[in-house]
Design a protein around this nucleic acid. Structure first.
Length: 784
DNA sequence: AGATGACTGTTTTTT
DNA sequence: ACAGTCATCT
């Protein structure tokens, strides 16, 4: 084996430095389009080839399932290519088809199959299927390895039930939505209900903690976990069980994390436990001695998930947390990838210029490697219909004039609701398109119904699923009957299923509905018996037959029912495909992948349709031509961030992400007027448009920024405050200083970002958690 | 038990 | 504007 694998010659020097890194911690600061995916895949290949690391000792965390799949594919290809050269002396392409397939399946068997590549959620779910029965939470709740993964709507209805019926809280004061959000946030901080109560000892915090606790009871009773639990439960298990921790620590010698700027506390805790085995940094055995590494890749400028408790300060602290605490000279534990291979110089200039308005950054500038390219076209339209017409006109004429196909175009927006006018105009012209996000396949009612049957078969404690299907299709089992049975189950402290399967109980409790219930229970038991002997796809077929679901849809014979039927068929196809891709796939594995699937996963490489998606979904993708639409104050940046400097910076990062998706051409549009909740509202151009260099812009909206600035600025609560306070001394703030905030009360400074006119403070408030505050915008009182 | 119609709040982003 | 929820009616 050569000491320097050939693929290294394809890299620039920083990339090579990252790829060749062997042990210890390394932070790769990777700007947009700088080849970070390549760095990640090559490093994995290099570890296996040069350092003889066994694939099963590698753990790579990606942000989406799609990214995981692509990474595995790229690694597979890399190895197949090498073997082709070594064995046959020619490139993989030139081999006969069957030789290629043979090579690839060989690589799959020996390497990629054993790699642990996936999202935090899928990897944790996989580990929990082995380990969860060793877990017990602080209140003694337990789960079994057949646990269901509850989706967001399951969770919402559970919380709602608890808030309104179980704890009889005022629905207006404790909206299930916001309570759900608070609980999710707590879980992402690594807090149990007791921790939450300790962290937020005010009335609201205590009430939410009690909902949280009751919610965990409900989850345990259903043998179910929510998304956040997949990570939190594993972290808590590793914290409480030394043997389990030792095993998994021992297992993963090299841990790689992509999009590290978007990790939350709990995810960080997991990485930390796995890499350090729970010891303090001072007590690490030297990394080299153990041949271990933690390798994270990220870009603070692309941190756009703080609403789901991601915290880019985790990335900023990486070197201090995992480093050797020696003075850093930028080479020891950090590598910067700044050369951009994706976009034209003009696009990069715009991106660099925009992001320079942010204070919370690691200084970094994207260096162009490509020619200037076309200017950025900034267009104003009368309303959202005209905006859509403009965009689609451009797409159609570009597709005609240049050698572009529909798949080369993307329309990116801030909110999912903005897709509609674009869809209408695209349909009108017969342009093929795909909308990513919005209503997902697995969120459709008929799909959720079938999935609920499957969940119930595997996990009979899953009362949420049981209640969903007991009368779907109609079997004459009414709500009152079900309620009575639920009541009985609660009194006995057993899952609803235990009542339903017991004929005597049903007969005494259910009266005239007893007959259909007993029949239903027998059907489920029959399916359960088949589950162990029959393939997943065959079982789906059985469910559709025995439950009468297909029959019911056929009997309706409406257009809607027909579409549902087609979707159900599609689900069956998905199971078949899953079985093909994963030999010996179990039904449970399929359910897991369905629960964690996202819409993005289907967006293929050879896309032949225009892509429509939110800016959030577009992270990690690239398109020759990008349309950034709806650049209006209040929409983008979203109105909820206008009076919060930290939130506004996140919106700006989102805009930066959007701009850097474009390879050749970028269009930015805004409207004069927009429909909102049905009524027309005047709209003014986004402040981000003003922040772009004027000389790079063309189009009728290019100058729109400045004209309205004066009027618009006076209306925004944030800017006058900034102006007023800027005359006051900002003072020298330091970490540890105590202060009083007019709204949030007393707090302590935990971070200082930037200095002078770019200063920003992270302040921890006992009851509000941590906030980023601009001391020039808000009068902070000093406390000695 | 199930259908019909008024009413409400909803829009930020997602694994 | 509109989907989802709730109360009331058959």
């Amino acid at each position: 084996m050569p000491s320097t694998p050939d693929f290294l010659s394809l890299l620039n020097s920083s990339q090579r430095q990252a790829v060749q890194h062997y042990c210890g911690p390394l932070l790769v600061v990777a700007g947009a389009g700088s080849g970070k995916t390549r760095a990640l895949t090559y490093r994995i290949a290099n570890l296996v080839l040069t350092h003889r690391v066994a694939p099963e000792n590698l753990l790579a965390v990606t942000f989406t399932n799609k990214a995981a799949r692509e990474m595995k594919e790229r690694i597979e290809k890399l190895f197949a290519e090498r073997t082709a050269q070594e064995k046959y002396g020619k490139p993989l392409e030139e081999l006969a088809k069957h030789e290629q397939t043979k090579l690839r399946s060989q690589v799959y068997k020996t390497i990629t199959k054993d790699l642990w590549v996936g999202t935090f959620h899928s990897l944790c779910a996989r580990i929990l299927r082995f380990e969860i029965e060793k877990y017990q939470d602080s209140k003694g709740r337990r789960w079994q390895s057949t646990f269901s993964i509850f989706d967001e709507s399951d969770v919402q209805s559970l919380i709602k039930e608890i808030v309104i019926h179980q704890l009889n809280l005022d629905e207006r004061k404790f909206e299930p939505r916001s309570v759900r959000y608070a609980i999710s946030n707590a879980k992402n901080q690594g807090w149990s209900p007791q921790d939450l109560e300790r962290e937020q000892p005010n009335f609201r915090g205590r009430v939410i903690a009690s909902v949280y606790s009751a919610y965990q009871d409900a989850l345990a009773a259903n043998n179910g976990l929510d998304f956040d639990d997949l990570i939190l439960v594993l972290v808590q298990l590793l914290q409480q069980n030394e043997q389990v921790l030792a095993y998994w620590h021992q297992r993963f010698h090299h841990i790689l994390v992509d999009e590290y700027q978007d990790t939350n506390r709990t995810q960080y805790d997991l990485i930390r436990l796995l890499t350090t085995n729970g010891t303090e940094p001072q007590a690490f055995k030297s990394w080299a001695e153990q041949n271990r590494s933690v390798f994270v890749v990220g870009d603070v400028d692309q941190s756009i998930y703080s609403f789901r408790a991601a915290d880019f300060k985790i990335l900023l602290d990486f070197q201090q947390d995992f480093g050797d605490r020696l003075p850093d000279d930028d080479t020891r534990t950090m590598v910067k990838l700044e050369e951009n291979y994706r976009s034209t110089e003009n696009i990069l200039a715009a991106a660099n210029h925009l992001i320079d308005n942010n204070t919370e950054r690691i200084d970094k500038i994207l260096k162009p490697t490509r020619p200037a390219g076309a200017p950025i076209q900034c267009q104003r339209a009368d309303d959202e219909i005209r905006e859509a017409e403009f965009v689609v006109d451009q797409i159609r004429s570009l597709e005609q004039q240049q050698e572009l196909n529909w798949g080369n175009f993307a329309i990116l927006y801030r909110t999912n609701a903005q897709s509609r006018p674009f869809e209408e105009v695209l349909v009108r012209w017969g342009v093929p398109y795909t909308v990513v996000g919005g209503l997902k396949f697995y969120d459709r009612r008929e799909i959720k119904d079938v999935i609920a049957y499957l969940r119930l078969i595997i996990n009979p404690a899953d009362t949420v699923s049981l209640k969903r299907v007991i009368n779907t299709p109609r079997r004459g089992i009414g709500k009152t009957t079900v309620d009575r049975l639920v009541q009985a189950a609660q009194e006995l402290g057993v899952p609803l299923w235990e009542i339903i399967r017991d004929e005597t109980s049903v007969k005494t409790l259910a009266g005239r509905s007893a007959r259909p219930i007993v029949k239903f229970a027998q059907m489920i038991e029959d399916l359960q018996a088949q589950a162990s002997s029959v393939s997943a796809s065959a079982l789906v077929q059985e469910v559709l037959q025995l439950s009468g679901y297909t029959q019911d849809l056929q009997d309706q014979s409406t257009d809607e029912a027909e579409e549902r039927l087609a979707n159900v068929q599609e689900l069956y196809n998905a199971v078949l495909q899953f079985e093909e891709e994963n030999l010996e796939a179990t039904l449970n594995q399929f359910l897991e992948s369905a629960a964690l699937a996202s819409d993005l996963d289907n967006l293929g490489e050879g896309q032949t349709a225009v892509s429509l998606m939110t800016l959030h979904s577009s992270k990690g993708l690239e398109f020759p031509v990008v349309f950034l639409v709806g650049l209006e104050q209040g929409l983008f940046p979203n109105f909820r961030s206008l009076d919060d400097p930290a939130a506004l910076e996140e919106e700006r990062r989102l805009c930066y992400v959007g701009i850097t998706r474009a390879q050749e051409q970028l269009f930015m549009t805004h409207t004069r007027e927009r429909r909102l909740y049905g009524s027309r509202e005047p709209a003014s151009p986004s402040c981000f448009l003003e922040e772009l260099p004027k000389q790079l812009l063309i189009g009728n909206g290019a100058g729109a920024g400045q004209r309205k600035t004066k009027r618009a600025a006076a209306k925004q609560p944030f800017q006058p405050a900034l102006a007023k306070a800027s005359s006051a001394p900002t003072g020298d703030w330091q970490v540890g200083d105590r202060t009083i905030h007019p709204e949030f009360g007393p707090g302590q400074i935990t971070h200082v970002f930037g200095k002078d006119d770019k200063i920003c403070l992270a302040i921890k408030f006992p009851n509000q958690g941590q906030k980023i505050i601009d001391p020039r915008a808000i009068a902070l009182q000093r406390v000695q």
